[in-house]
């Protein structure tokens, strides 16, 4: 394994999932590997002539970023980007394909990390001046308006239709959406990203915000896997987990606004049991 492969592995791992949401063991190993690679890179670039050049600075920035106790994934993505930029114009056939692969993952990682940082900072700024009781009020309101009416209402309805459809229709509903008796249901894949934005980044409670993000990311990965049987099965898990969050914030009954997968005021606990 060459140094560039270590950079690719790390970037690939972080492209979809924030570092703090990775399994502790996976994260520890990924960081350790990157650290070793950055150290080796620094060692190989330790020649005095390289210091102060864009290439030398990029390596130093990567080394500094990966060495921090409190890792900043956005800073790491920028540092990896600087390393890529420094060599992108060079002629080195031995690593040309690897560089292309690195760029593919890096583009996604950089965007995702920056986006996550901006959205997280924005909600933290919004919430920082609110007293604790107002924060709880804010979170309950957001979850009622966005999680229940905007997300779960749709996803419960989709799950209900998927159970009775032919496999062709199931694929269609997942991929592009379709018109059913209760209305025009958009495709599951299409809507997943906006769901995440609408809900996960609007809650003041940091732990729950991260939990919600994890629920969405886990299901996004299931969707990306393309296994329709699993996608349908895991949709129930996704719905159940979201409803559990709603319960935590004191939302005990479900009432759909447009779609009615369950009758108005159905206890959420009952829906969770049904989905289990």
């Amino acid at each position: 394994m060459n140094i560039i492969h270590s950079l690719i592995d790390f970037t690939k791992l972080c492209q979809a999932t924030p570092l703090f949401l990775l399994d502790e063991k996976v994260k520890t190993e990924a960081v350790a590997k990157l650290k070793i690679a950055a150290g080796k890179l620094r060692e190989l670039m330790s020649n005095e002539e390289n210091k102060g050049t864009s290439a030398g600075d990029a390596v130093e920035m990567l080394w500094q970023s990966v060495g921090k106790d409190d890792l900043d994934e956005q800073e790491l993505s920028v540092a990896l980007g600087q390393v890529y930029e420094a060599v992108s114009g060079t002629n080195n056939p031995a690593i040309a394909n690897d560089l292309e692969e690195l760029k593919k993952y890096l583009d996604v990682f950089k965007y995702r990390a920056l986006h996550h940082k901006i959205r997280s900072e924005y909600i933290e700024k919004t919430c920082q001046n609110l007293p604790p009781e107002k924060r709880a009020e804010h979170d309950q309101k957001v979850l009622k308006e966005k999680l229940i009416f905007y997300v779960v209402e749709y996803s419960l309805e989709v799950a209900r239709w998927l159970r009775t459809m032919t496999s062709d229709d199931q694929k269609k509903l997942i991929e592009t959406g379709m018109k059913v008796a209760s209305g025009n249901l958009p495709g599951l894949k299409e809507f997943m990203k906006s769901y995440k934005e609408e809900v996960a980044y609007t809650v003041c409670d940091e732990a729950e915000r991260h939990h919600l993000l994890k629920i969405f990311l886990d299901y996004e990965q299931t969707l990306a896997g393309g296994d329709y049987v699993k996608i349908i099965k895991e949709l129930d898990v996704f719905n159940r987990e979201l409803l559990k969050v709603a319960l935590k914030f004191g939302i005990t009954a479900f009432t759909g606004l447009i779609l009615k997968p369950y009758p108005d005021n159905t206890p959420i606990e009952r829906i969770i049991k049904e989905l289990a």
Binding site: I4, L41, G56, V83, A86, G89
Partner: peptide, 29 residues
């Protein structure tokens, strides 16, 4: 094709090439 900008000094170009070479080096692992 690697076409260094006219403003890049030979030191900068060499450093970039050194980094490209280093990336292809075994990760000591």
């Amino acid at each position: 094709k690697f076409t260094p900008s006219p403003t890049e000094s030979s030191t900068v170009v060499k450093a970039k090439q050194a980094l490209a070479d280093a990336l292809g080096h075994p990760a000591e692992e």
